[in-house]
Write a protein that binds this DNA or RNA. Sequence first.
DNA 1: GTGAAAGCGCTAACAC
DNA 2: GTGTTAGCGCTTTCAC
Lengths: 334, 334
Amino acid sequence: MAATLKDVAREAGVSIKTVSNVIHDYPHIRSSTRERVQQAIASLGYTPNQTARNLRSGRTGVIALAVPDLSLSYFAELAASVIAAAEELDLAVQVEQTVGTREREIELLRTPRLRMTDGVIFSPLEMGQDDAEHLAVDYPLVLLGERIFDGPVDHVTMRNVAAARAATEFLLDRGRTRIAIVGAHEGEVIGSAGLRLRGYREALTARGVPYDESLVASAGEWHRVDGLQATRELLGRGVEFDAVFALNDTLAFGAIRALEESGHHVPSDVAVIGYDDISEAAYSLPTLTTVDPGRDWIAQRAVEALVERIEDPTAAPRTMLADFRVVERESTGG
Amino acid sequence: MAATLKDVAREAGVSIKTVSNVIHDYPHIRSSTRERVQQAIASLGYTPNQTARNLRSGRTGVIALAVPDLSLSYFAELAASVIAAAEELDLAVQVEQTVGTREREIELLRTPRLRMTDGVIFSPLEMGQDDAEHLAVDYPLVLLGERIFDGPVDHVTMRNVAAARAATEFLLDRGRTRIAIVGAHEGEVIGSAGLRLRGYREALTARGVPYDESLVASAGEWHRVDGLQATRELLGRGVEFDAVFALNDTLAFGAIRALEESGHHVPSDVAVIGYDDISEAAYSLPTLTTVDPGRDWIAQRAVEALVERIEDPTAAPRTMLADFRVVERESTGG
DNA sequence: GTGAAAGCGCTAACAC
DNA sequence: GTGTTAGCGCTTTCAC
């Protein structure tokens, strides 16, 4: 049904090579021929068959981005950044959701759906260090996140420990010493929760503030409701604190709600700092002080690194670290 | 580099047809042959070249979803639903962002990036009824949203007028009669703002409550900050009201902030209702009463309709309407 | 039961 | 300047 090169060639009374030449702006064409061909292209409404080109070239111009779930603001905003960065390089982005289970994450790496892409940016939330072997796939892959380090792949990630330490020091600098943590994962060493908790402890140690386990509230998932419940639980236990470091912004919003509903004012009674700098942080009440972990940079670097990997599949895997900064807003009394 | 059918055939000492038969579970194969072939496939690590299959079949198994911006919660959640629905049908989703300008929306419809997909789900935010002609593209297209009606394409959308009327009646039923509108677009007739305002007016008329233009606050964009500013402006004008109908949830969160900061308590002083039922509405403080416009149904129906359209490109265009419901939460005193 | 070969639409090396 | 042709890797018709 759709017109092909052959159809255009017949219509214009030339060979397909000539049509191809016109399409590719090959310079040495008689201008009368060029015109005839362009006419034929227009009258038949010809558009090149991209699939055939892909087969020829061995490239598709599509990369995949696998995230847990676009309903999570952090990943929605990451995806927005990745798509924007990919577009700059004229690449399309196929988005896959793993819905945040380890099995689905591992399974995704073998999905036939990926076989049509030139490479994959993969952001797992549940796989662990022991799953590193699963990353040894036979297509270009760039890893995001902080679940697996020193794997057999390029890795673009953030400085979790240093950033969490900076967030904690930010609170200490403002005279807060009883700093609760919301969102801990018990026993986790590697992963967002484990690393950020480590940064927190480093800050305390550096300032000579004792670490008090009763200030640590766990939350398996990091939705708003989890921050709400974890903070309620802290308050219910009668723990005294003058600040909260929520391990992501969404938890922080839940924490603020729990504080307000129990009569604690933010920031005068309790200062709250988050992590991620999702766009909502700038518009909440109060606006949220948080850590910008370099999401845009990560997105752009991931796309670039993937393209580099596609071009040179044999280069040694690299790890790339984003810069972070604390963004001061109202929730810490700014 | 990657093994092909030919390689497998050579390795197994058979023809490529036999290999193909094995791959496609063709029943009449000598089991010894089948085993030999499977061995060869395993030892060479053969995986079918999807691009070649695509060329043969004329299908790619990829659909595109074009939304304004994944940073907008509504569209992130819509994308999440579309991807989930597509996966059920074993389709991949290529996500495109138009960043919400009319020119980019129109341009997107002609992007070569789309030529690799089997069809497109298109959700414009700026194009208007006059742009309907641009939708007459030569590939399968399903339109979402409420910018263009009766275009030359399948259209899956929500009952904006009826749902907005129901939201307004919900407030009226609870004794609120001075209902402010946040997020109006002056002069708009078609489009989310125009249609929802119409539903609001219908509800007032039906109940004999006079329409008061001073209660209408405009907001070109619908981010949180826009709801904040629009509501501040209402308050600044000294307008009296006991309820707010925000034309989406994000505006509602901004409105709540403006109310709280000016000493108005939600819901006792002012009840607030939103529109969209984004997941955040269930976790805000107060939780937000809102309209669920049937987003999941829209996503699923859009994917199904697109597949039907791919299979029968000549069928007459259809319009499909989702059911809605008012979800009662704390912001209206539930 | 298995093989040979055409062809999906395109690009590009090679002729003339 | 323009035409011929050999693939890219796969599916499938038709022989045998």
